[in-house]
Design a protein around this nucleic acid. Structure first.
Lengths: 129, 129
DNA sequence: CTTGACCTTCCAGTCACTGGAAAGATTAGC
DNA sequence: GCTAATCTTTCCAGTGACTGGAAGGTCAAG
C-alpha cells in the first residue's frame, strides 16, 4: 500500500513516516514506480510508534521498544525497566510543573492587572522584591 | 564587565548570553579590544531572562515581558494576561502528564517483568489487547 | 488530454540552545 | 620579558522530532 494509506491506518502524517524511515526505524519495500510499498507488518510498526510516542517515549526509546516488540525472545523485564524510568521522569516533570503553577498562581493573584505601571509579577521576576 | 562576569552574575552560560544577543534581546557595549562590555542594567536584564525562562515562558514571551519590564509606562494588565495564558498551558500540560502517568502505572503494574517473552506493555502499545 | 491528487527527493526552518574549531586578548607566574 | 593558561571573539554545525515547501514524476477520472 502507498504511504497515504499507511498514514491513514497508522495515524502518522506521511512526512513523519518518511522521517522514521530516514532515521532507520523501518524500511518498506519499493514498488516498480519508486513509491514506498507498506505491508501490514509495517503498518503495525507504525501504529506501535504512534502509540509509544503518544505515551511520551522518545524516538530512541521507541526504537528500543520496537526492537523488543519485534523480538519474540525478549524478556518483559527489559520493557518494564524502560517504562519504569519513563514513569519516574513523568513524576518529576509533574512535580516541577506544579511548582511553576503555584508560583504563577501566586503572582497572578497579587497582580491587580490594571493600567498602573507597577506590577508584582515583573517585580518578582526582576528580583526587586 | 566581560561576558564571564556577566555569566556568573546572571546564572546564564556565556553561550546563552551571546545567543540572546543574536536574537536581539539585548545589545551590550563593546570595549576597545572587541570584548562585550556589560553594564549592571544588562545584568539585570539577563537575570530577568534567566528567571522568566525558569518560570516556563518561551523566549518570545520573555521578549514581551522584558519590553514591559523596561517600559515604565506599561500596564500591569498586559503582564497579567501573559502570565494567565501561560498558567492555562501549564494546567493543561499537568493534566496530560497525569493521564500518561496513569496509563504507564497501569501497564507497569501488570507486567510481571521476568524472562518470559510475553509483555502486557508491548501488547497494549501494539494494540493486541 | 487535461486536471488534480498523490508520490518522490531535497533543502530549509522550527526552538533554544550547545559544542567545537580557529584565532586574538589578557592575565598570572616565573 | 616569556610562556602558559585562561578568556574572549566569530563562525559553523548539531540536537530532537518533526514540518513546510519547491520541483518534478505518476496515476486515476472524466
Amino acid at each position: 500500500m502507498n504511504i497515504g494509506t499507511a498514514s491513514d491506518k497508522s495515524g502518522l502524517p506521511p512526512k513523519t513516516i518518511r522521517y522514521y524511515e530516514d532515521i532507520g526505524l523501518l524500511k518498506p519495500e519499493r514498488a516498480e514506480n519508486g513509491y514506498r510499498d507498506y505491508s501490514m507488518s509495517d503498518v503495525h510498526k507504525l501504529r506501535f510508534l504512534q502509540r509509544s510516542r503518544g505515551l511520551g517515549f522518545s524516538v530512541e526509546e521507541c526504537r528500543q521498544l520496537l526492537a523488543l516488540y519485534v523480538d519474540k525472545e525478549r524478556a518483559s523485564a527489559d520493557v518494564k525497566s524502560i517504562a519504569q524510568s519513563k514513569l519516574l521522569e513523568i513524576d518529576q516533570k509533574i512535580l516541577e510543573l506544579r511548582e511553576l503553577q503555584h508560583t504563577l498562581q501566586h503572582l497572578v493573584a497579587h497582580c491587580h492587572g490594571d493600567q498602573r505601571p507597577d506590577c508584582p509579577i515583573l517585580e518578582t521576576i526582576s528580583g526587586e522584591k
